[in-house]
Amino acid sequence: MTSSTFAHFLHSMKVRSRTADLVVVGNSGADLDSIASALVLAWHVTCGRPRKRPVALIATRRRRLGWRPEVGFLLNQAAINSNDLLFLDDLDLKKMVKGGTELFLVDHNRLDPDVVDHDVAQVTGIIDHHHDSGHHTEAEPRIIKKAGSCATLVADYILADTGDMEAAAALLLAGAILLDTVNLSSSTGRTTDRDRKMAGKLLALCDQEQNSLFDHLQQAGTRLGNLSSAELLARDYKEWSWPAGFYGIASVPLLLHQWQEVEPDLAAAIAGHARHHDLPLLLVMLSGGRRHFQRQLIIYCRNDRLLNELVDFLEGQDLRLTTLGPQQSVADGGRVRMFAQGKSAMSRKKIQPLLHDFLKKRLTHPA
């Protein structure tokens, strides 16, 4: 599958970056949704606003692309060379922003301070499907809507403008939607009518069969045997601030029994990630199951009272938690608890705002 205009844009991005005045950037998790949304939207801006000189930035280090085999698979299917893409290694984004380069955020709606300075950056556009943080209200467009995938909103935005899209671009967005919604499943609680509508249009544009594309993406995404536990925890990790410092949530596309087959001391590995980021609290959300989608939850906490209160709170949010084994103590004094999560619709996107409100209200001065 080839796409001359889209492919040419991507192939020329490194040259374009020397004079770019707009950077379309996904979130620092750098998953398929963020990457596809940034690449396709940057190309659309080039087509629709010729006076702008945009590039797309993948907000992680180049070496980490190998941590996401599903992304590599889909790029290959779309005949896109990853060497053409721009990563944090390739751009001095902070310098560009200080020089007046504008930012268009996709798959997040608040700047990541590790990527660029909040006080200097000018955010002129946002398309996102997460909880509205209330930041960058001057951005235009500022599209923050409920959807299973940011790629859905990007596709809607582009197709409303052009009515068409090249096959390779449509393939990237379609793949992101299917992966984020678990093949448009209703049971995950993520999928909206907008996701179904956009997926149907995109699959027709790239001439792909839904189930086949999803199966190939899902199979590719499980090829993680060469990753250490530290890399699995880092590949899709996000953190937020609260009165006691920071807390983090990592997403790992494995179930507990699969991970424990290659990691005999999982509690210690999770505690190591928390220590590396100086976190008093870390949640690890596991997912998997080819026929029946499942979620599991691991909580690491350095404070017993906080841990017990948090478990009570989450059970009150109807996560349908079932304990998997006894609580474990780790060398740094922290505790680790593991659960099956019966309500698979509660993803990180839904749990994090609830957790944040809980911490702000009840734990301003944790013991």
Rank of each mutant, 00 (worst) to 15 (best):
G333R: 07
L179D: 05
H276A: 15
L297G: 03
T101W: 05
D33Y: 04
K95G: 08
R16L: 12
A204M: 10
G66Q: 09
Q317C: 12
L202A: 08
D357V: 03
G134L: 08
L282V: 03
A167D: 15
R63A: 14
Q296C: 02
S329T: 15
L224M: 09
L282S: 03
D278S: 14
L321N: 03
L321P: 03
S241E: 14
P54T: 05
S229F: 02
L354G: 00
D180R: 04
V311I: 13
C150W: 05
V154I: 13
H136R: 06
T5E: 14
T191G: 01
K350G: 01
V311M: 01
P50Y: 06
S37I: 01
K238E: 04
A331Q: 13
L363T: 03
L354W: 12
E239S: 14
R302Q: 14
W240I: 05
R190E: 10
G100W: 09
L321F: 11
L75R: 08
G148E: 03
F73Q: 10
L324V: 12
P366L: 00
F87H: 06
P141A: 10
S133W: 11
D31K: 01
G289M: 08
F246D: 10
H108R: 05
L88M: 13
I126P: 04
D107Q: 01
G175Q: 01
G325L: 02
G221P: 07
R194P: 00
A36E: 06
R335N: 11
H131P: 01
M96K: 11
S28K: 14
R290L: 11
E309G: 13
T137P: 00
S149V: 03
G148H: 02
P253E: 09
Q77K: 14
T322G: 09
T364L: 10
H135R: 14
Q317W: 14
S37W: 02
S287Y: 15
D312S: 12
A174L: 05
R337H: 05
T191K: 00
R110Q: 13
A204F: 02
D265V: 08
D195H: 01
G100D: 12
G26D: 02
T101A: 11
L354C: 00
S241V: 07
L282R: 10
K201I: 06
T2F: 15
I158G: 03
R62E: 14
L359M: 04
G288C: 08
A42E: 09
G333E: 11
D156E: 15
V336G: 07
L310M: 11
Q317M: 12
F293E: 10
R348I: 05
E261L: 13
D156V: 00
A121S: 11
A199G: 02
A250H: 06
P54C: 01
L307D: 00
S229R: 04
S187N: 12
M198I: 01
T191Y: 00
T5W: 14
L103G: 01
Q341Y: 09
A204S: 14
N27L: 07
M13L: 09
L171E: 11
R63P: 07
S82E: 15
D112K: 07
L363I: 02
N27M: 07
H273N: 11
G342K: 09
V182W: 03
S149I: 02
W259Q: 07
H8Y: 12
M346K: 10
P50E: 00
V123H: 09
L224R: 12
L224I: 09
V154C: 06
R295M: 06
F358E: 06
Q258G: 02
R49D: 07
V15G: 13
R53E: 07
Q327L: 13
T19C: 08
K98R: 15
